[in-house]
Computed example of a mutant assay.
Amino acid sequence: MQEFPITRAETLKPKPDPKTLVFGKTFTDHMFLMNYETGKGWHNGRIVPYAPLCLEPSAMVFHYAQEVFEGMKAYRSPEGGVQLFRPMDNVRRMNESCERMCIPKLPEETALEGIKALVRLESDWVPSESGTSLYIRPFIIATDPSVGVHASHTYLFCVICCPVGAYYKEGLNPVRIYVENEDVRAVKGGTGYTKCGGNYAASIRASARAEEQGYAQVLWLDGVHRKYIEEVGSMNVMFKLDGEVITPELTGSVLPGITRRSCLELLRDWGITVHERLISAEELFAAAQAGRLEEAWGTGTAAVVSPIGEMGWKDLHVGISGGKIGGLTQKLYDTLTGIQWGTEPDPYGWTVKL
């Protein structure tokens, strides 16, 4: 186990009420930092008090958006311990994002040990209320003070944490989503398969329009043909159609979600036929109108599994599963969260105890 120097915060923050947690608003006492410099590599991993970062106004991340991030969680088990869910998968996916954004890859074991060390130090922040967890946000930013379009020579890897409750105010109640016809989130050959801020910045306008119409999220279409379903908001999406599960295939513009992968492994182990393929909005809505679309849900670290109860596209509006969570959606949620919180056995070795 790698050890890192720790500078402890002089004053500790009060812990928030776990019953009223708001996602992504309260942060813990410490953060993990590590620097990169060309010729020196990644070095100086350390834990320091959570505080503002000191960056030049000319830092390249501000001007050319050379950055990547991840999202993962720590969970409180019934015995009182803390565990992570598939953390090395997050580190490896972060390195895939780094490769696309021309950022030096992290030493995987060192990065994971840094995350573990921070969570151990902040273990008192991991809530134990049902449905709560400690959200972990690792990210890398380009720090060269330079105005010029090229890869930075220096970077900062930072990990921050925040205790969270439900991602959506609806909780596990089905959400309403709307198919976006105007804006494009990503295209093949671009950065759609990475977790970089530009992908999410490009989604904000459509999300705002959807919210104005009373929808919780946007269902994105592909950027070339403008007809095939890709993602729902910040999550992957799945549909139960005629007893089988369909999810958009990974074409290079869809994020390879870790929760998505976990759901697919569970579904196949349960003997359910799964198709990773292109599915058009036209096909999807025709199936819904014909009563063949049985369930729909989003998958992601933040919400885990989020049932979809209604979809809108152009002038069409269809309900799904009577506006209630479907049986398969519920089973996926219960199984995944059971493994994550340690209330169900983990035959896959997905959890890492701290």
Rank of each mutant, 00 (worst) to 15 (best):
M1E: 14
Q2K: 11
Q2I: 13
E3F: 13
T7E: 13
R8M: 04
A9Q: 05
E10W: 02
P14I: 06
T20D: 04
L21P: 05
F23V: 07
G24D: 08
T26A: 10
F32V: 09
T38D: 12
K40N: 06
W42F: 04
N44I: 15
R46P: 06
A51R: 06
C54I: 14
L55C: 09
L55G: 01
P57C: 03
R76S: 03
G80Y: 06
V82A: 13
Q83D: 12
F85S: 06
N90C: 10
R92F: 06
R93N: 03
N95A: 00
R100Q: 12
I103W: 07
K105P: 15
L106P: 06
P107Q: 01
E113L: 10
E113C: 13
G114R: 12
G114S: 05
L118G: 03
R120I: 08
L121V: 01
E122C: 01
D124I: 03
D124P: 08
P127L: 11
S130D: 15
I140M: 10
I141S: 04
A142C: 08
V147C: 15
G148N: 14
H150C: 12
L156C: 02
L156Y: 00
L156Q: 12
F157D: 05
V159I: 14
V159D: 02
C161M: 06
C162Y: 06
Y168N: 07
E170K: 04
L172T: 14
N173R: 13
N173Q: 12
R176D: 01
N181V: 15
V184D: 00
V184F: 04
G190E: 12
T191L: 02
G197E: 09
G198Y: 01
A201T: 15
G214R: 04
Y215M: 15
L219V: 14
L219G: 10
W220V: 11
V224L: 11
M235P: 07
M238R: 13
K240F: 14
L241M: 09
V245T: 05
I246S: 10
T247F: 10
E249P: 00
L250E: 08
T251G: 13
T251M: 14
S253W: 00
S253H: 01
V254P: 10
T259P: 14
R268D: 04
W270M: 06
I279Q: 01
S280T: 04
E283S: 02
F285K: 10
L293N: 07
W297M: 08
W297L: 13
T299C: 13
G300L: 09
A302M: 10
V305S: 01
G309W: 11
H317P: 00
Q330T: 11
K331L: 12
K331E: 12
Y333T: 12
D334V: 08
L336T: 00
T337L: 14
I339D: 07
D346A: 15
Y348L: 07
G349I: 10
